[in-house]
Design a protein around this nucleic acid. Structure first.
Lengths: 293, 293
DNA sequence: CGCCATCCATTGAAATTCTCAATGGATGGC
DNA sequence: GCCATCCATTGAGAATTTCAATGGATGGCG
């Protein structure tokens, strides 16, 4: 960040207005400024940029390539400013939002997201329910949720919005001795869990024998068991940490496909509060991902 | 537009920096200002907004709901400003882009979009080819296009990005006398055309007899024939005009499903110029739609 | 061919805005 | 109870921004 972008929204608005009005003078009238001010504002914009924005041709003018690019961004930024303004003016959203989510994802990625949401919309009552994907989808089809975050196969598709994707890896404690020739001890969530199925299918697929050493429906329980050296589990890469390490082909473990989390919204028009939460989740996770990667 | 949003990007950057640094003083250091300046900037922001942004709690502070909302928008706007800045700094994109598109869509919606693109990127050579959807998809699968705009069924799906959707209507000249009991005279594009199939299927579906009165592959040809009163055609609603009028159930004509245009990009990494054009098309059409509706 | 209307650029002064340094008030740790 | 830290406020000075007036250039029109 050597040169913080020196954009001034007023100048950008002037640029857009000039283009829309087709002239400096008319833009001045619409903006309630004098024409000389408009000229100077464009000059300021160009000086700050180091490039011309308009190509002057005697009486008329045309946008330069830089001007055209800047114009496109200006429109978007001004639209966003207008939207922000409208959002700030309108009354607080209230109501209730019922969100279903996998527990492991929620405990790692959602606390901050939901905390920010609840601060932005203190009158919205959040009802978050953690469960297995199968149960979430079941409840979703019965109308028990406004929004559901679900694990799904990485090829995506369907009506949901992809909000997260990351590699799935085998993880074990350092104190666990792994022997590629022995059946592998697994620490997994109980039956309807998607990762459980993934792990077992992958092992069966490559002919590696296995046994279930420990079963727990909660992230904390699984982590405790793995940390105790009771076996190997399967985790999103981001969740590996604290004494765990990633194990793989060197111990005869197969590669795993990525995991993907998608957001599904209940059919029909959603209450405004749920709409807001959906947008908030999508945006927060996409920027978290951009910032983290 | 009674109150143009009085946002100042510098103030928003200050807001974001305060939150990220966790304090006014640290934010001042990072921004190269004094702490009093930061305080005043926030005060200015709050005065302009008419609401507090921070809730002061003695030594510390917390974001108000308004502050939280504004923070989210501020981040997005600053990211956009940074992106604009980066885009303006980087050298001109050059190369060639091969775009396939239906002729009717191109002649109505693309001229301005492509003109702006070519002004923003004068060193990019645009090669636009108009053809029927079937031929476009055929050429696309042979690698003849970087990007293709295609008509498709409105339920969407697949890998393309929806860029346009509008109702399809029957249109005729005022001078054409329509009799619900007579076979309807059609003015259509020749065989592989999608709308031709739509029209005939719809009429067959409701048992209405028809005959082809005029065939032309070009929009101009079809418009001339319809204007001459030679028959009825099928058009996107937006393209009705100039002596045409919409006809429908009152003459025994069936309703038509919407038409949808999607953008497909060639598999694999696209040249930068094509990437830019794709982004430009999507953005331009989405704002045109927002502005027009 | 020359006049006029229109449009953008420039100039210098006035007003507004912004920043800074210093100081004050409040809070929490030790 | 003292000290360190943090944000708020104040008044002066500096920088920026706006305005009114003027200048230069172009194209239309008789």
């Amino acid at each position: 960040m050597p040169t913080p972008p020196p954009f001034d929204l007023d100048l950008l608005r002037t640029l857009v207005t000039i283009v829309d009005c087709g002239g400096f003078t008319r833009a001045a009238e619409r903006l309630g400024r004098t024409q000389s001010t408009i000229s100077l504002q464009i000059k300021r914009l160009e000086d700050g940029l180091g490039n011309r924005v308009f190509e002057r041709e005697g009486r008329g003018f045309a946008l330069t390539p830089h001007g055209e690019i800047l114009l496109a961004y200006s429109r978007r930024m001004l639209l966003m400013a207008d939207e922000a303004c409208a959002r700030l003016m309108e009354p607080d959203v209230d109501g209730r939002v019922r969100l279903g989510t996998p527990e492991d994802f929620a405990s790692v990625h959602l606390p901050d997201v939901l905390w920010r949401f609840s601060r932005a919309h203190p009158r919205v009552a959040l009802e978050v329910n953690c469960d297995f994907t199968v149960n979430l989808l079941d409840g979703f089809s019965k109308g028990e949720y406004d929004l559901v975050l679900c694990k799904r196969e990485p090829q995506g598709g369907g009506s949901g919005i992809k909000v997260w994707r990351e590699p799935l890896v085998w993880a074990a404690s350092e104190r666990l001795v792994l022997d590629p020739l022995e059946p592998i001890s697994l620490v997994l969530a109980p039956y309807p869990d998607i990762y459980r199925k993934r792990a077992i299918d992958a092992l069966d697929g490559c002919g590696r024998p296995w046994r279930i050493a420990y079963t727990s429906p909660s992230v904390a329980g699984i982590q405790a068991a793995v940390r105790a050296g009771l076996g190997t589990t399967i985790l999103p890469k981001e969740m590996v940490g604290g004494g765990f390490h990633i194990v793989g082909a060197e111990f005869g473990l197969p590669d795993l496909a990525d995991t993907e989390i998608a957001l599904y919204r209940a059919p029909g028009p959603l209450p405004k509060a749920a709409e807001r939460l959906a947008e908030h989740i999508v945006r927060s996770l996409e920027s978290e991902r951009a910032g983290g990667g």
